[in-house]
Amino acid sequence: MLALAGVAIPTHLQGRVLVGPGAAAAPAFVFGARDRMDIEYDMMRSARDGRFLYIRNFEPELPYAGHIIYRNQSAIMQEWLRLQAERKLTGPAALWMRTQRPAEELYDTQADPHQIQNLSAEPAHRATLARMRNAVTDWMARAGDQGLVNEPEMIQRMWPGGVQPQTAQPYIVPRRTTEAPARQASMRVEGATEVVIYVPTQGASIGYTTEEGPTPKWRLYTGPILVDAPMTLRAKAIRYGYKESVETRVTFTKL
Rank of each mutant, 00 (worst) to 15 (best):
H67F: 11
R56M: 12
N134A: 15
E61L: 10
P170Q: 12
P113Y: 00
N150D: 14
R142L: 10
R71E: 09
M97C: 08
P170Y: 03
R133N: 06
I116T: 14
Y64H: 03
W159M: 12
G161R: 07
H125K: 12
P160K: 08
I69G: 04
E122D: 15
W80P: 01
G144S: 08
Q117L: 10
I155G: 02
I155P: 06
P170I: 04
L148W: 11
P174I: 03
W96F: 15
Q110E: 12
D138G: 00
H67R: 14
K88A: 13
P165A: 09
N57G: 09
D108T: 05
A130I: 12
T167F: 01
A75P: 04
R133L: 03
P160Q: 09
Y54M: 07
T99Q: 12
Q78S: 10
E153L: 10
A94H: 05
G161E: 12
T99E: 15
Q169N: 02
T90W: 04
Y64V: 04
L119V: 03
M97E: 02
V163D: 09
G161W: 04
R71A: 10
E61P: 00
T99A: 13
D145P: 12
G91Y: 03
Y171S: 05
M154D: 13
T90Y: 04
Q73H: 14
E86Q: 14
E105V: 00
P174R: 14
S74N: 10
T167G: 02
D138I: 06
A127F: 03
